[in-house]
């Protein structure tokens, strides 16, 4: 068996999948936090906008969103910007996952005791300071397992990026399979590659959870 095509294709595919996951997750987390905060914030139009965003996005299959952004939206703006598959896929994944992550953040904030906000504000902290130093760290700690699940789901969903010609793992698997005709071996290796990425991710999340776990704390009620 000639190792050359494998070595040419697989490392780049792994890197692309990992990179796409990291960038999409970053977009999803930041956008998700913003939408989640808007959803429970004091400004009604923002609350409504955030709720609409979440409902709309959750109602559209991810593959359609990717097509929509790369081919649809990309076609619309083709005069000013030539759509890049990687940027489009990152945007699509980020926007999609932000909707789910926003709901996680919302639940995370809402599960905190009102007394935390009151104590922070009573000390003179502004809304923003209370959020940054009191609410967000606690909410983040509580939702970390759920965010970890989203991260792993996102990693696997990046296989959909193959529809916009990104050579991530799944796309590369197809290429490699047609090149080598070793279908069983190729797809076994591709599956193992995904596992090689998801395992460290869940391990990392668990490590972070352990680090953020507060001494003396019992199970959340």
């Amino acid at each position: 068996m000639d190792p050359k095509p494998w070595l040419e294709i697989l490392p780049r595919a792994l890197a692309n999948t990992a990179l796409l996951t990291v960038t999409s997750l970053a977009v999803g987390l930041v956008l998700g936090l913003i939408v989640g905060l808007a959803r429970i914030g004091p400004i009604k139009p923002l609350r409504i906008a955030a709720a609409v965003y979440v409902e709309l996005i959750r109602g559209i299959p991810l593959a359609v969103q990717i097509f929509y952004i790369y081919y649809g939206f990309g076609y619309l703006i083709r005069k000013v910007y030539n759509p890049n598959p990687f940027v489009s896929a990152t945007a699509a994944f980020g926007i999609c996952y932000a909707a789910y992550i926003a709901e996680i953040f919302r639940a995370g904030f809402q599960s905190l005791d009102r007394g935390q906000t009151e104590a922070a504000r009573a000390l003179g902290l502004t809304r923003r300071q209370a959020l940054r130093h009191v609410l967000l760290p606690q909410a983040f700690r509580n939702i970390l397992p759920a965010l970890g699940n989203e991260g792993i789901a996102l990693l696997k969903d990046t296989s959909l990026a193959s529809v916009v010609t990104i050579s991530e793992l799944t796309q590369s698997g197809k290429a490699l399979a047609s090149l080598t005709l070793r279908f069983f071996e190729v797809w076994t290796v591709i599956a193992l590659c995904y596992i090689a990425l998801t395992l460290p991710l869940s391990w990392g999340v668990r490590r972070l959870e352990a680090r953020l776990r507060v001494r003396g704390a019992t199970l959340p009620h």
Partner: peptide, 13 residues
């Protein structure tokens, strides 16, 4: 103005 609550409301983290 300092305030102390019935439920302490210390920052647990």
């Amino acid at each position: 103005v300092g305030m102390v609550f019935q439920k302490f409301n210390l920052f647990p983290h």
